[in-house]
Amino acid sequence: MGHRRAAARRGQRGLGANGSRQGVADQSLRQVVRVSTGGSTVRIRLSNAYGTTPLRITAATVGRPADGAQVWPGTSRKLTTDGSRGVAIAPSPASRTSSPSASPPTTDHRT
């Protein structure tokens, strides 16, 4: 079975090129987010609210960001959903949430 391209979406005004107009297929995506609360575990919510075909995620990780798109060594943590590394999310307003995973270390690695 071949891979289908994700549905194209219009990007937000004022933001640069982000793949949303042409969609993405067979590519890795990295998003940096700022976490404002602490804890010993992390969960990620994924949705396919704007898709027209299932969104297939083969693997996901979290880690402490370094410069650019790098992750500090030793901070990468694998995410699972119901014990599986991959998940397919049907097009709908519903979402899937990862299983709890150990949070990346919070030590400031920049010093």
Rank of each mutant, 00 (worst) to 15 (best):
Met1Tyr: 03
Gly2Gln: 06
Arg4Gly: 07
Arg4His: 12
Arg5Gly: 05
Ala6Leu: 09
Ala7Lys: 05
Ala8Pro: 15
Ala8Leu: 03
Arg9Asp: 11
Arg9Ser: 12
Arg10His: 08
Arg10Gly: 11
Gly11Phe: 03
Gly11Pro: 08
Leu15Trp: 04
Gly16Pro: 04
Gly16Asp: 12
Asn18Ile: 00
Gly19Cys: 02
Ser20Gly: 05
Ser20Asp: 11
Gln22Glu: 13
Val24Lys: 04
Ala25Lys: 01
Ala25Gly: 01
Ser28Cys: 05
Leu29Trp: 01
Leu29His: 02
Arg30Gln: 10
Arg30Gly: 02
Arg34Asp: 05
Arg34Glu: 09
Ser36Leu: 06
Gly38His: 12
Gly38Asn: 13
Gly38Leu: 15
Gly39Ile: 06
Gly39Asp: 10
Gly39Cys: 12
Ser40Val: 15
Ser40Gln: 06
Val42Lys: 05
Arg45Asp: 02
Leu46Gly: 00
Ser47Leu: 01
Ser47Thr: 03
Asn48Val: 00
Ala49Glu: 03
Thr52Leu: 02
Thr52Ala: 03
Thr52Cys: 01
Thr53Tyr: 01
Pro54Glu: 01
Leu55Asn: 01
Arg56Asp: 01
Arg56Cys: 00
Ile57Pro: 15
Thr58Pro: 12
Ala59Glu: 06
Ala60Trp: 01
Ala60Phe: 02
Ala60Arg: 03
Gly63Asn: 06
Gly63Phe: 07
Arg64His: 13
Ala66Gln: 13
Asp67Trp: 09
Ala69Gln: 10
Ala69Met: 09
Ala69Glu: 07
Gln70Lys: 09
Val71Asn: 14
Val71Arg: 09
Pro73Cys: 12
Ser76Thr: 15
Thr80Met: 09
Thr81Tyr: 10
Thr81Pro: 05
Asp82Gln: 12
Asp82Gly: 11
Ser84His: 15
Ser84Arg: 14
Val87Asp: 00
Ala88His: 11
Ala88Cys: 10
Ile89Thr: 11
Ala90His: 14
Pro91Gln: 13
Ser92Val: 00
Pro93Cys: 06
Ala94Val: 06
Ala94Phe: 13
Ser95Glu: 15
Arg96Glu: 05
Arg96Ala: 08
Thr97Ile: 12
Thr97Val: 07
Ser98Gly: 03
Ser98Gln: 03
Ser98His: 00
Ser99Met: 05
Pro100Gln: 15
Ser101Arg: 09
Ala102Arg: 08
Ser103Tyr: 12
Pro104Met: 13
Pro105Trp: 09
Pro105Cys: 12
Asp108Met: 07
His109Gln: 10
Arg110Phe: 14
Arg110Asp: 14
Arg110Cys: 08
